[in-house]
Deep mutational scan, measured.
Amino acid sequence: DYYEVLGLQRYASPEDIKKAYHKVALKWHPDKNPENKEEAERKFKEVAEAYEVLSNDEKRDIYD
């Protein structure tokens, strides 16, 4: 669930989505996790995908 990936509720505002994305993206950035790079890359891609969908009103409506 994209909301879960970003740690958000379904009623999150666009500002909340952006803030959550930056927080979680920093947490899972591969450069910040050199000891667990493969998992970090996978999680970072999930976070980016979730943000791409939830930050676009049209894609978010379809997802919801």
Rank of each mutant, 00 (worst) to 15 (best):
A48P: 01
K59F: 05
K19P: 03
K23G: 08
H22Y: 07
P30V: 08
E15C: 06
I17F: 00
E39P: 00
E41L: 12
F44N: 10
R10Y: 04
P14W: 01
P30G: 07
A48W: 06
G7H: 03
Y51W: 09
D16Y: 00
F44D: 01
P34Y: 05
V47G: 05
E35D: 14
R42N: 07
Y11T: 15
Y21F: 11
E4A: 14
E39Y: 15
I17C: 00
P34E: 09
E58D: 12
N56D: 11
A50V: 00
V53T: 15
S55R: 09
K37E: 06
E52W: 10
N36K: 15
R10N: 08
L8E: 06
E49H: 11
F44Q: 14
V47C: 15
N33S: 10
L6C: 01
D31T: 08
K37C: 08
Y51D: 02
G7C: 05
R42M: 10
E38K: 10
K37W: 03
Q9A: 14
E38P: 09
E58T: 15
L54C: 02
V47S: 05
Y3W: 02
E46V: 07
W28A: 06
E15H: 01
H22R: 13
Y2W: 12
Y2M: 13
E52R: 13
K23E: 15
Y3K: 04
V5E: 05
A20G: 07
P14R: 12
H22S: 12
L8M: 03
Y2E: 02
A40E: 03
N36D: 12
Y63I: 06
L6P: 01
V24T: 09
V5Q: 03
P30M: 05
K32G: 07
K32L: 08
K19T: 14
H29Y: 04
F44S: 13
N36L: 06
S55V: 11
E46Q: 10
P14L: 15
Y51A: 03
A20M: 04
K59E: 07
D31E: 12
V53I: 10
E39R: 11
I17E: 01
V24W: 12
L54E: 02
A50S: 03
S13L: 05
Y3P: 01
A48R: 14
D57P: 14
D1R: 04
R42A: 11
A40D: 05
P34S: 15
Y51G: 03
L26Y: 07
N33Y: 06
P34K: 15
P34L: 10
R10V: 05
K23I: 07
L54F: 00
V24K: 10
Y21W: 13
K23M: 14
A50E: 01
E15R: 02
E4V: 05
Y2Q: 00
L8W: 00
D1A: 08
D1M: 00
Q9P: 13
Y51R: 02
L54M: 02
K27L: 13
Y63P: 05
H29P: 04
E15M: 07
V5Y: 01
E46L: 13
E4K: 10
I62G: 15
D64L: 09
R60Y: 03
H22Q: 09
E4T: 15
L6T: 03
K23D: 14
P30W: 02
F44V: 07
P30I: 03
